[in-house]
Amino acid sequence: MKATQNLDAQDGFAMTFNKPNGWMNSFIPWILPALFFMGWFLVSRFEIIPAYLMPSPRQVGEAGVMYAFGTPGEGPYAGRFWVDAWVSCGRVLAGFSLAALFGIPLGVLSGRVDAMQKTLSTSINALRAVPGICWLPLAMVWFGIGYKTTLFLVALAAFFPIYINTAVGARQVSPLLFQAGAMLGVRRMNAVFSILLPGAMPSILAGLRLGLGISWAYLVLGELTGVPNGLGAVIMDARMLGRIDIIIVGIVLIALLGRTSDLLLSGVFRLCFKSARRLA
């Protein structure tokens, strides 16, 4: 059957992308932060903004080192970072997991089952229109201050992007793929795992990433209500004491943790699912 080796087969090859080289790739993402840092440095160096409003990079750096590596008792925030980060990460993880636990199955159902879509979409879209912060007073009455309220806010906020993106992804999987699967012997229920979820993977992962990002936002909201620990609590506390440097440290650390968790989420999905590796 070598007769089949023909023009078509010889001409077909992997698309080659115009990739900048590796050095450029790792350099480009840091251009903006570097510019920002330089601007900040100049602003504080020439006291364009007074130091009590905008501390210098050096001052913030020192506060950060103290916060992360200081011995407890040495200063007001010394060495608290690890406990705060641990607590905050736990809250994000719990709330986000809860959101995914409901968001993905409900999203799949409303993406594929018309009746489900009709039942859910109006209510969910109405709820989605309510800004998350509106839930805060209610949550505080219901759940008190602290863990439960934060968990509720994070789970509620992360649910919507996960649900909506999963539904869109599930709806967009071509019916022909299901026909092809059926013809190749895939039973109905198996098709969910072997066709539907892999086919919808790019949207599901996008929804999860958006949800995780929002989780961090609502974590801080939940922690601003006066819990004893957590990154949000530190920021709130520093505001009371006028420690702008610690506020900035908190913001930077949340940015770092948020980005790291996003990379971790994508990485774990790429590791576990072919479809995430190859489509997303």
């Binding site: 071509s174 022909l176 793929l177 026909q179 092809a180 059926a182 013809m183 190749l184 012997g185 895939v186 066709i195 892999p198 086919g199 993977m201 072919k274 479809s275 190859r278 489509l279």
Partner: peptide, 27 residues
Amino acid sequence: SGPDRCVVFQEDTLFPWLTVKENIAFG
């Protein structure tokens, strides 16, 4: 439908997340 009557469709119905080999071995 079942694997005793296989269909080759006009449209592209390969599973995009599987390699050529994995697509062939799918059924």
